[in-house]
């Protein structure tokens, strides 16, 4: 075990890193499962989102926009806009991962915040450690996230009125929790505040879902300027 001469990194250390990320993140799947059912999605649709979409922020966005009365198109667009960063992660990691054929197509599905985060944190251990960290974290989150989604969805569907259990506040709370660690500069805080206000201001005038997408202009505005 571990004596393979081609692999010189400590697999156990990488596995420990990936498990310490994938297990806690996976348990948040229960929050998604509950929120999705509270938003009106069936247990099967909820599990389909975790299996097929498999990107927390986009999944919450899809159920959030539908719960707010938005169209399917608004939900798909908002989920897609939040999914752009996964494509950019893949862009950055592709030269390191160097996957070919079918492996590339499966790796794409597990290209998420956590697998990329752990892979990048293994930089000092070398590229094979980064590849191993990417795979073990991606697969780990996939297993835990889908298991806990089912647990959350089934429990939520058996408790009746979601408001009685605070589940309708769980969706915006989850968004706030996902937003929080990203607010690492004053510029991002201003952008967040401006978009919260713009979305509310547009709410009476646009069909549900569109005010959320409209806030992309704030990302363009703040992103265009270098400071």
């Amino acid at each position: 075990m571990g004596q393979n001469s081609r692999v010189s990194f400590d697999r156990r250390a990488v596995l420990r890193d990936s498990l310490s990320v994938s297990l806690p993140v996976g348990t948040y799947g229960a929050a998604f499962g509950a929120a999705s059912v509270a938003a009106g999605f069936s247990v099967i649709q909820t599990c389909a989102l975790s299996l097929l979409l498999f990107s927390g922020a986009s999944q919450f966005a899809v159920v959030g926009v539908m719960a707010a009365g938005g169209s399917a198109l608004s939900a798909i667009a908002t989920g897609g806009l939040l999914g752009i960063r996964n494509g950019l992660y893949a862009l950055r990691m592709a030269p390191i991962l160097r996957f070919t054929g079918i492996k590339k197509f499966s790796a794409a599905q597990i290209t998420i915040d956590e697998s990329i985060g752990v892979a990048l944190s293994q930089e000092t251990r070398g590229e094979s450690a980064m590849r191993f960290g990417f795979l073990s974290t991606g697969i780990g989150v996939f297993i835990f996230w889908n298991f806990f989604t089912l647990v959350g969805a089934v429990s939520a569907s058996s408790i009746g009125n979601p408001s009685m259990w605070g589940l309708d506040a769980a969706v915006p709370a989850a968004f706030l929790g996902l937003l929080w660690p990203r607010l690492d500069s004053m510029k991002k805080k201003y952008a967040a505040l401006a978009s919260a206000i713009l979305a509310l201001g547009l709410t009476p005038f646009l069909p549900a879902g569109l005010p959320i997408i409209a806030t992309v202009v704030i990302a363009l505005f703040f992103g265009w300027r270098s400071r």
Binding site: L82, I84, L179, R182, A191, S195, A199
Partner: peptide
């Protein structure tokens, strides 16, 4: 910035 503005507007909405 895209996740920041979208998540923030989702919170408020």
């Amino acid at each position: 910035l895209i996740p920041v503005v979208l998540l923030s507007s989702l919170v408020s909405i």
